[in-house]
Amino acid sequence: MATPKPRVKVPKSAKAGETVVIKTLISHQMESGQRKDKDGKVIPREIIHKFACEFNGKPVFSCDMEPAISANPYFEFNAKVNESGKFKFTWEDDNGSVYTDEAAIEVS
């Protein structure tokens, strides 16, 4: 597929202290480095090796990814929000690219 495109789903609003569900999905082929092409040559590994989420600059969730993870990695996790602000998401690709996305939440 073309350039990996992230999708995130964060509720638009929440009550202070509420735990919200955050979902993220990114299109990526997650080439494992184990496969060979038609000529028998190894297709070089190219995966997203790190995903991180922060809220107003503070880390919420992060993880390293390994080659066994399927294409189009999907993450779902919870976060407790006490104030309005912005979630920032980053995906780091083996090829050096960093894909980012943001989502704001209104806390009352």
Partner: peptide, 15 residues
């Protein structure tokens, strides 16, 4: 429909 990876291809199709 958010978790469905097929929706990524719908978005790509729109492009």
């Amino acid at each position: 429909s958010f978790a469905n990876p097929g929706m990524l291809y719908v978005e790509r199709g729109e492009e």
